[in-house]
Amino acid sequence: MDTIKRNARTAALLYLLLVLVAPIRLVYVPSQLFVSGDMATTAANIMAHPGLFRLGILTDLFCATLEVFLTLALFRLFKDVDRRSAVLMAVLGLMPVPLYFVNVFNDVAVAHLLLGASPAGFTAEQVMSLVRLAMTLHDAGINMLQIFWGAWLFPLAALAAKSRLVPRFAAGWLFVNGVAYLALSVTGLVAPSWNGTVSLAAVPAQLGEVVFVVCLLWCGIRGHRATSAPAAGAVA
């Protein structure tokens, strides 16, 4: 049980760190700098607060790296519960990492265009068009990433329920969280006008990861009565 507690604590702390840091670029930076439908004001805000925008870039890079270690930590925790599901969870968890890094280049391009030296041979209107394109591509990248952010939660929820390391309601909520990510992705890609409505409706579902992290951290600190559950479900 000491090994299970240690692995649960490690995975929970990594997940908690991701939950705390990821909203900086996904939520906080856009809320402070971006103005929907007004690229001129958005660009002016970025140029007025370059440090905040660059912080968003750094947090994206940090989260992409952290996702690798988190996925491996969760695989180590659940691999004896159901190895096939654990492998599927790990594959789905690692697949978006390269896309995450590539998507950061769109923000780097915005920083270069607005915060660096003015590109030679480009008019102000052309620079603004390039900024708009880069930011649009970044948003599209997030929509694609949400497919994986949702899909990997399905095997993770199944593993959590089977292991009995967290309450079943937490595993179920995690599954609903995965559905919410997929709904946000589909809406963002094919029906952007519904983005606001779906995002608002998805807020309660997206607390599933928070609940899972809290329960997993509690397991890592205090242990769990079902100490033999993972071994009982092990796959040879």
Rank of each mutant, 00 (worst) to 15 (best):
K79M: 14
A124F: 10
V87R: 10
V91L: 13
L74I: 05
L77Y: 03
L74G: 02
Q126H: 10
K79S: 15
T123V: 11
A124N: 13
L74A: 04
A86P: 02
L74E: 03
E125W: 08
F105Q: 13
R83T: 09
K79I: 09
P98N: 03
F75V: 05
L114Y: 07
L92R: 00
V127Y: 01
A124P: 05
N103Y: 04
M89W: 06
L77F: 10
A86N: 05
V108K: 02
V110G: 01
V81F: 05
P96M: 03
V97D: 00
K79T: 09
F78Q: 00
A120C: 11
G116E: 11
V97R: 00
P96V: 04
M89I: 06
G116R: 11
M128C: 02
F122Y: 15
T123Q: 08
H112C: 08
D107R: 11
L77T: 07
L77R: 08
N106I: 06
D107L: 14
M89T: 07
G116Y: 12
F78D: 01
G116I: 11
H112D: 15
Q126A: 14
A117D: 15
L77W: 05
H112R: 15
F78Y: 13
R83P: 00
D107V: 01
E125G: 12
L130H: 14
G93V: 03
A124D: 15
Y100I: 09
Y100E: 13
D82L: 04
L94Y: 04
H112Y: 12
F101G: 00
V81W: 03
R84L: 00
G121H: 11
A117N: 15
F101S: 02
L99R: 03
F75S: 03
V102P: 05
G121N: 10
G121A: 10
A86R: 00
K79R: 15
A86T: 06
A111Y: 06
L115S: 08
V102L: 15
Q126C: 07
P98G: 04
E125C: 10
V87Y: 08
G93W: 02
L99G: 07
M128V: 07
K79E: 13
V127A: 09
M89E: 05
L77Q: 08
F101C: 01
V81D: 04
M128F: 06
A124Q: 14
L99C: 08
L92E: 02
R84D: 00
V110C: 02
V102H: 06
F75H: 08
M128I: 10
A124M: 09
A117Q: 15
A109P: 01
R84M: 02
V108R: 01
P96I: 04
A117S: 15
L92K: 03
F75W: 12
L94P: 03
F101M: 10
S129K: 12
N103S: 13
D80E: 12
K79D: 12
F78C: 06
A86G: 08
M89H: 11
Q126V: 12
E125P: 06
L130A: 15
V104T: 10
Y100D: 11
V110F: 01
A120R: 14
K79G: 04
L113H: 04
L114C: 07
V81P: 01
N106F: 10
V87F: 11
P96F: 04
M95W: 04
L94N: 05
P96A: 05
D107F: 10
G116M: 11
M95K: 00
V87D: 02
A117K: 14
S129Y: 07
S129F: 12
H112M: 15
F105S: 13
L77N: 03
